[in-house]
Simulated scan of single mutants.
Amino acid sequence: MRKTARYASLAVSGLLALSSLTACANDAASSSSGAGSKGDGKGTKVKIMVGGLDKVIYMPAILTQRLGYFDSEGLDVELLSEPAGVQAETALVSGQVQGAVGFYDHTLDLQTKGKSVESVVQFSHAPGEVEVVSTQKAGDITSPKDFKGRKLGITGLGSSTDFLTKYLAVKNGVKVSEFTPVAVGAGPTFISAMQKGAIDAGMTTDPTVATLLDKKAGKLLLDMRTPEGSQQALGGPYPSSSLYMQTDWVNGHKDTVQKLVNAFVKTLKWMSTHSPSEIAAKMPADYSQGDKTLYAQAIKSTLPMFTKDGVMPANGPETVEKVLKAFNPNIKNAKVDLSKTYTTEFVDAAK
């Protein structure tokens, strides 16, 4: 346990240090204009923190920028990146940024903590997450029932991968106290942790999944990249990646929020009419890590999770609440007003 805890602490510290440097570099390069104000002539300035810019589940963020849709709406959007969605959430509630691209489930969790945050455009109707078991442990871990006594990789404590891992365990008869969550981020740090035996299994997304399978370092245990996979694992549609913002800021900057939603809805429609290879070609070159074919395959595997119009899926919020109530005592014992966790006002206007 001590070694695991130490590893998790070191992994998180390293990732936070790296992401902080990245954020500082981005801040230094940007103008010092206030959020929601006119900056250097590029348009209305907005900062958005993404829980991993290179993750395919959050692809609409960088893709909207690459397609020029922010610019066409008169916005100067600065995209910042943190390795886990929970850190994007922290940046939002502390006022460092005006929006966060992360999982919708954070809006419910924050409401129980007295924070009013809402999703303004829903990118997905499935988690896009995959539970991968290391090749060495594949014979011993064949379902979440086998999580007991295992070290399970997540992006960060309090992240959506943490939430979903706990739910899958509890649903399959394993108590939260009977396994060890290990914060290992995503990408190279997740892959290294699995190869070195620091984790037995873990929850991650593409392109990490595609790389793990290509290296034969891991095998699929549960695939929640499609609505069907979400239904099977979680019992319904699971709205995950979204743009969420503090409600007070939304109400005070409706014109800016509408422009953001317009841009994202355009991107979701564009994604639904273009091939994985065409989408991959629009992304930053380094996202493919030297293997364009594998990267296009990662996009293809994850595309089914995305909505085509940014609309919250029917019964999606209820599924999320059910999942969180299964293990989260704050939500289990609280009355959550789901109507305040998302709004369709801006998506309806965009359509």
Rank of each mutant, 00 (worst) to 15 (best):
S13N: 01
G34V: 06
T22M: 03
A23R: 13
K45M: 07
A23F: 10
K42E: 10
A23V: 12
D40V: 10
A35W: 04
S33L: 06
G14Y: 00
S37H: 11
S30V: 00
L21F: 14
C24I: 10
V12N: 08
D27Y: 13
A28C: 06
T44R: 02
A25F: 07
L15W: 00
A17G: 15
D40C: 14
A11H: 11
A17M: 05
A25E: 13
T22W: 05
T44P: 03
L18M: 07
S37Q: 01
S31L: 04
N26V: 00
V46D: 05
G36R: 08
A35Y: 02
A17I: 09
G41N: 03
N26T: 14
S30C: 08
G34R: 14
A35D: 14
T44G: 01
D40K: 02
A28R: 11
T22P: 06
A23D: 15
D27M: 04
S31T: 13
A35S: 00
S13V: 12
S31Y: 07
G43M: 02
G39Q: 08
L18C: 06
K38F: 10
C24V: 09
S32K: 07
A23M: 12
T22V: 11
S32G: 14
L15F: 04
K45P: 07
G39E: 10
S13M: 03
S13P: 12
V12C: 07
G34E: 15
V12I: 10
A29I: 02
S32H: 13
A28Y: 11
A25V: 07
S20N: 03
V46W: 00
L21M: 14
V12Y: 03
V46P: 09
A35F: 05
D27T: 12
S13G: 02
A11W: 07
G34T: 07
G43L: 07
L21V: 00
V12T: 14
L21R: 09
S30K: 00
T44S: 05
K45V: 09
D40L: 07
V46F: 09
K42Q: 03
G43I: 09
N26R: 15
G39A: 15
G41E: 02
G14H: 05
L16S: 02
V46M: 11
S13A: 15
L21I: 14
G36S: 03
S32W: 09
A29C: 12
S30W: 04
L16A: 12
A35T: 03
A23L: 14
D40Y: 05
C24F: 15
G41L: 09
A17C: 11
G36P: 04
A11E: 08
G41V: 02
K45A: 05
S32R: 12
A28P: 04
S33N: 04
L18D: 14
G41R: 03
L15P: 12
G39N: 09
K38V: 01
G39V: 00
S32N: 11
S33H: 11
D40E: 15
A25D: 06
A29N: 12
V46Y: 06
S20T: 14
